[in-house]
């Protein structure tokens, strides 16, 4: 067991989790959440749980912040919907019709 390394990783997790709670702006919070996911996966790797570290890296660092960012973009887009209209041409998603 590697005591100091575990301590550092744990401190990193506590620090980034606290910052994630204290950040109020969703976009910044998503970024801090990604950092929290990264430090959690470091902690899991240090604690000899590489399987969990991989899951945490993939979901906590990439997927969850991405879903949050996309949701924020969708919600904040409502107000500036008219400013950026598409060019109207191009290929449609072939499945878009089947998803109504």
């Amino acid at each position: 067991m590697n005591g100091p390394l575990i301590g550092v990783a744990l401190a990193l997790v506590v620090l980034s989790a606290t910052v994630a709670v204290l950040t109020r702006e969703p976009v910044r919070q998503a970024v801090v959440l990604a950092v929290l996911g990264l430090s959690l996966s470091v902690l899991f790797a240090v604690l000899q749980a590489p399987d969990v570290a991989l899951s945490q890296l993939a979901v906590g660092t990439a997927l969850t912040p991405l879903l949050i960012l996309l949701t924020v973009r969708k919600v904040s887009r409502r107000s500036l919907d008219d400013s950026d209209s598409g060019d109207g041409s191009g290929d449609d998603d072939p499945d878009a019709g089947g998803r109504t």
Binding site: L66, L67, L70, T71, K74, R77, D81, S85, D93, A96
Partner: peptide, 18 residues
């Protein structure tokens, strides 16, 4: 599953006009 999930989120965020 994750690609389909992200596809719906992306469709909402990128393609859809409210």
């Amino acid at each position: 599953g994750v690609i389909v999930l992200l596809a719906h989120f992306l469709e909402q965020a990128v393609e859809m006009s409210g």
